[in-house]
Amino acid sequence: MKHFILSFIALLFFVFESIFAQLFASDVFGADKILVPRFIMIFVFFLTMFGSRKIGMLYGAILGLTYDAVYTEILGVYMLLIPFLAYLISKCMKILQNNILISCLVALLFTAVLEVVIFQMNIILSFADMGFAEYMDRRFVPTLLLNLVFIIISCYPLKRIIEMLDLQGELE
């Protein structure tokens, strides 16, 4: 049952990401800005923080693989990157205080890390043709703003749902 609810939320975010990209691809937020929704990743980050590390990494790997297969068509990048970041997050949260503000900031920080790693990855695979300064201005800052808004909106409901499911006892 727990996994059913979690998978359902994950699937919703997964599809919503693509619909969001389709709806806001035109110049709603200014002509040359590119906003990348990272809802799935934020979901996994919160799952790791409020739930458990194992479940976070497991969902990260599955969702990452789905993301690779469905959207980017280059297997492996998200599949390994998301669980790795989830692992780092769980390490971070052991040091940091576990309150909701800190959680939001950490989630934002890791979204930023993910963005930059993906950018470098695309540079290596020569799918990107953009200088770093241009990247910062056109993609990085708008993307972070969008995801910050999403984090603020979703963090409390997600925290409640994940804590209600009580994942701690299940896999650890």
Binding site: S18, I19, A21, I34, V36, T72, I118, F127
Partner: peptide, 14 residues
């Protein structure tokens, strides 16, 4: 069109 690659590095539609 039912979706767009959210990553936006590979411009693709579904």
């Amino acid at each position: 069109v039912i979706g767009r690659n959210p990553e936006r590095w590979h411009e693709m539609l579904t």
